[in-house]
Each structure stands twice: as structure tokens, then as C-alpha cells.
Design a protein around this nucleic acid. Sequence first.
DNA 1: CCATGCAGTTAACAACTGTTCTCCGAGTTT
DNA 2: AAACTCGGAGAACAGTTGTTAACTGCATGG
Lengths: 218, 218
Amino acid sequence: MSHTLDDPAPAPGARRAQKLRTRQALLDAALRLLEEQSLSSLGLREVTRAVGVAPTAFYRHFRDTADLGVALVEEALGSLHTTLVATLAATGDGEERIAAAVELIVAYVRAYPAHARFIAREQHGGVRRVREAIGAQLALFAREVAAQFAREPEAAGWSEDDLLMLARMYVDHMVMTASALLETADAEPVADTARRQLRLVGLGRRHWLDTTPASTDQ
Amino acid sequence: MSHTLDDPAPAPGARRAQKLRTRQALLDAALRLLEEQSLSSLGLREVTRAVGVAPTAFYRHFRDTADLGVALVEEALGSLHTTLVATLAATGDGEERIAAAVELIVAYVRAYPAHARFIAREQHGGVRRVREAIGAQLALFAREVAAQFAREPEAAGWSEDDLLMLARMYVDHMVMTASALLETADAEPVADTARRQLRLVGLGRRHWLDTTPASTDQ
DNA sequence: CCATGCAGTTAACAACTGTTCTCCGAGTTT
DNA sequence: AAACTCGGAGAACAGTTGTTAACTGCATGG
């Protein structure tokens, strides 16, 4: 509990720390402003004004607002990979996993609504580089989910391509559910619909090899 | 084939016709500008400049750019209802219907790429009124699709709520497929993935009542 | 301890925005 | 043929935008 901030002999790294702090302030302010507009209309001055720094300070951290947007993508989705894969790996198949996955989305949207809104909005938004960044992240999610599926016994007989197709379906459904949660006051009906839709896809998954046994027997 | 435009005694309704013409020019110009940005950053002057009219002329047709956006929603989705329902009604169940549905989306995106982009982009975009307009249209689509399903023998035993859930899944999948088509050069792989995903959902649909026969037997 | 690096400031720029008010002229109605 | 309607033009407004330049002061590395 000793003094660490108003020290006359500042701690080493105080330089970098202060820079990171204003950088984070810019990201936070931008995220707040983006709740009511799209990135393509977000002004650099608007952000700096909200933080309380000079407009030119912006350039010390980002080339332009698109650059800031890419940073926001990382902040919003970067930490989600481990959580998602861990959730899938920790739960068995069927109803248990469905409940866990939906609960994960609901918790995420509740904890970081602005991040979720940003991703849903800019996934198809007007800024190419941000769109591509989100697309790359979601494609990575899909590959990770597919890889997890491949480790499970239910994936026997599935082609790699079909597994990826299934995984993409789950990932896209996640984003849509998040977006739906953001526009409703009561989360429960939305979560319920999401669970039923996952149940439906799960049923399709279980019967995928029924009609076309393709190359493998069993 | 007589003269109708440069008539010294102009045909009645020329007033209204000219107004509609510039209104349409504004819509077209806006749609073109929106290929590279979001509606929330579209400026009123930008649109009028592209058309070649004075900025103030804009107010004769729209209150603001959000109002123009709502009009674009109608233009993009209004005529699609009949086409969609007709396609569903004309095709039997199974593979045939899947091919027809995907072909419908592919054809739409090819014919009106700017409209499709606009809907995908502004569905979660930064302008509330436009978001709501799109949401209402898509909800209407879902109800229409559900109603069509209800008329078919495969829907026996399905609750109304489950049918709507299924329909929403199809509608949302349509929008996602359209968006994916816009970002790819070669439509075929995307269309193929979309077909497989529909096949998966269809399988889930056929086995929906297997585990929980609920109230009905058979 | 001093010289360098660099986050942030100030000032100024040309260009752009939405909106108001006034006006014109051609289509429309009587 | 006169009176009216109304889509569009023109000019002007107060604010805003992104970007450049030159500056200041403090944490840092030699």
C-alpha cells in the first residue's frame, strides 16, 4: 500500500505504462461511442475529445480509426479462444454441451455488451480491414471448434470439410445469438430459441451419415 | 412511340414522375456510395453531389439519411417476399428445395449485390430505425416461411413455436449466405457449403420428433 | 548528469458537414 | 388565362473533420 503513483523517482517502465493507459482510454472511449454508430463514421477527434487529450495524440497510438478498429477486434475476440475451446472440451455431447455453450454467449454479452455489439456490427461493416480482421478471427474459431470435434468419437466417418462446415455453422450461430441478445430486454426467450436451434443442428449431426455412408462402413 | 418527354404540352403526372425519378436517383446514388461505407457515415451532401442536384433538394424526398435507409430496406426486401414463398411452395421437400433456395440467393446476390450488401451491413448497423426496419422484414420472412412449412405434411406434430424457430434459422442462414457470397470471388464453394448446411438442418428437422414425441404418436 | 527519445500540446489549414431562408420557374388546377 | 403548388437552386451559417507543423517537458539510457 505504499505510494507508487506520485513518486518523485518514478518506477521504471512508467513511460510505457502511461502510454498503454491512454491507449486503453482511447479504445474504451471508442467502444462507448460505437454503441450508437458504426466505425466508418467514428471520428478521430470525437474519440480524443471523449478521452480528454489533444486530437494529435491519437496518432501516437493508431494510424487512423480503422487501425483502432482492428485493435478492438483483438480485444474483443482474442481472449475468447481459450474459453470457448475449454468449454467444448469440458462438456460431453448433447444437452449438457448445448446449455454450456449458450450460457457462455449469454455471459459474454452480459459482461461485455459493447464488445459483442462491435463484433456483430462490424462483421459486415463498412471498413474493409476490420471486416477482414473479424473474418479471420471467426475462421480461426471455426477451425478450433472443428479440431475439437475431430477429437470426439461422434466425428468418425466425417470428412474434414464437413466438420469445418458444421463448425462454421456453430460459430455463425453464436454471433447471431449474441446479436439477438443485444436487441432484447429479456435474454431467456432468445437463449431458449438458441438452445432449440442447437438441438436441431445436433440432431442433424447425429444422422449425417445415415443416408450417405460414403466411403467408410461401420 | 410518339414524343412523350419534350412535349410542349406536358402529359399530366409529369410532375410526380419527375419527382419519383430524382428520388430514385438519390436511392441509386446512396446505394452505390454504401458499398464502401456504412449508412451512419453517409452524408446528405455526398448523395446529392453524386446525383447532381442541390443539397437542399434532398429534403424534398427524405427527412435525413436514416429515412433514406428505411426506403432502401423496402426496395431491397419488399419484392422478395412473393419470390421466396413461391419458390418454397413450388418445390417439394428435400434436395430439390435446397438447391432451389440456394440458387435463389445466388441469383439475388448476383443481380442486386449492392442491395444484398446493404441489408447484411445495416442489419446490425449503427442506425436504429434502419435496423428495426430490417428486423421487421426478416421477422415477416420467418413468419411466412413458417406458415408455408405448416401447410406441409412434414410439419405434423410440430408446435407453432418450433416451426418459427426453424424458419428463423433458415432466414438467418440466408442472410449469412448472401453475405458470404459478397465476400468471395467464386460463388460455388460458398453455395456448396450452404447446401450442406441446409441438408444438415433438414436432417435435424426430420428427426426432431424422434426423441420427444411430446403429445402426438406416429 | 546530461543528451536523447517520445507522449502529448498548441495552432492553424482547407475541406467538409447539416440546416435555414429566400427565390425561381415550370407543372397543375380552376 | 390567371392563380397556385411545389421540386429544385442558391447563398450563407456555424460546426465539424483529418492532417501538418513546430513545440514542451519528462522518463529514459549512456
